[in-house]
Computed example of a mutant assay.
Amino acid sequence: MFGRRTRGTDPSPTQGALSTIEGSDIKVAGEPTFPPLRVNAFRIGLVGGLGVLLSLLIGAAVTQLSTVLVYVGLALFIALGLDPLVSWLERKMPRGLAIAIVFAAVIGVFAGLLFTVIPLIVQQTGNFITHFPDIVTDFGNSDFVKGIESQLGGAVDVDQAVQGATSFIQDPNNLLALGGGLLAVGSGIASGLTGSVIVLILTLYFLASLRSMKRVAYRFVPANKRKRFASLTEDVTGAVGRYVVGQVTLAAINGILSFIFLSIIQAPLPVLFAFIAFLGSLIPLVGTLSGAVIITLVCLLASPTTALAAAIYYVIYMQVEAYLLSPRIMNRAVKVPGSIVVIAAVAGGALGSVLGALVAIPVAASAIIIIQKVVWPHQDAKTWPADSTRSLP
């Protein structure tokens, strides 16, 4: 029993371990041999250099097209914001008629700004510039300035500083220099009007073809995942649209209340300030504060009492907006936690300036929707088999 050997099991000193060394190649018995690997350094360097050059060309093209991309992104953003209103009207009328009504309303608002608000702003700004010397004189003679001057012990001549600022502002050459020259100012105005028209036209096209654009995008997704992708896309675009509606609602509330309060306290340029408050509130997180600071500083020239009243009002309003209006409106719109709103707005503003701050919260809402409907279900599906004896820690 101990002396027998089974045939085929006798280990041989040359079986499985036989190898011959020839030069630098090792050949193992029974294994195929391959030629030595040769690296073509020139080919790798050439392909890598072409890749870097292509990346630089793409970056240069994106930089050159940055203005166009901003127009496209803003128009798509507005179209997604108007789509819920179009969908609501579509229940009562054909979609084409609903789009025409909504776009006519947008054109009406834009025309109203051009022919109603802007002439009032120009008129009130002209009156402000005309009476600016008197305003500055009254400001310099006010008890507020005299008190500050006495507190500083005469170290700073407030009257001289005010007179210097007045002479600087009244010089047209200085105003043009601040704006980059007459040509730059005119070019900026023309560019703004042209951009507004382009955005309106693109908004109309996007609003009319939004569903067909979605269908084309769905065709790039495999058929077995297309239904889920379409549902997820509808949720994301719906969140963006609701966010736009909510942000415009907040801006309108701020503009209307600002006009009413500034008219009551007889602040200068109430229409202009209300418009600034409206535009500022369109920018999340910092827009309302920036508009309030601008309005308060200009009111300080008219009267310290008026500026104090405006400052107190905006401090109270920002608390109401932050803790009452914004949570109620935005939680219904996008359902994003407050901490995420702050982080997204700051990060978006740092990366993409005003447009980045505008789209940051919808992007955060979209990420939350994707996590809730894709990532979490995928993780929840990873369970232990039924016959497994392992248990969670």
Results as ranks from 00 to 15, higher is better:
L54K: 07
Q64H: 02
Q15F: 09
F42T: 15
G48M: 04
G45D: 14
L46E: 08
S24M: 02
V47S: 10
P35D: 07
L53E: 00
A61Q: 00
V72F: 01
I26P: 05
R43D: 13
E31N: 09
V70R: 15
V62M: 06
S19M: 15
F34C: 14
F34P: 14
L50G: 02
L57I: 14
Y71A: 07
L76A: 15
L37M: 01
R43K: 13
A61L: 04
P36C: 03
F42M: 14
T14F: 15
V72R: 05
K27D: 06
L37D: 08
V52R: 08
G49A: 14
S19T: 15
P32G: 06
R43A: 14
N40P: 10
S66Y: 11
G48V: 02
A61H: 00
T33F: 12
V47R: 10
P36A: 10
L50Q: 04
R38C: 06
L57K: 08
T67I: 15
Y71W: 07
T63N: 06
G73T: 12
K27G: 06
V39I: 14
V39S: 05
G30M: 01
V47T: 11
P32N: 04
G30P: 03
Q64K: 04
L53C: 02
L18P: 09
I26G: 04
L57Y: 01
G59I: 12
G23S: 00
S66D: 13
L54T: 12
E31C: 08
I21D: 02
L56M: 05
K27F: 11
G16H: 09
P36I: 06
L65D: 10
I58Y: 03
V68P: 05
E31F: 12
S24P: 10
L46I: 00
A60K: 03
L65Q: 14
G30Y: 05
Q15A: 12
A41T: 05
L65V: 13
V52T: 14
S66E: 10
P32D: 13
V47I: 12
A29I: 03
I58H: 01
A60D: 06
A29K: 09
E22D: 11
G49E: 13
E22W: 02
S24W: 01
I58L: 12
I26F: 10
V39K: 10
T33M: 11
Q64V: 00
A61W: 00
P32A: 08
V52L: 15
S55F: 03
A79D: 01
E22P: 07
S24F: 03
I44G: 04
S55M: 12
A17E: 11
R38K: 13
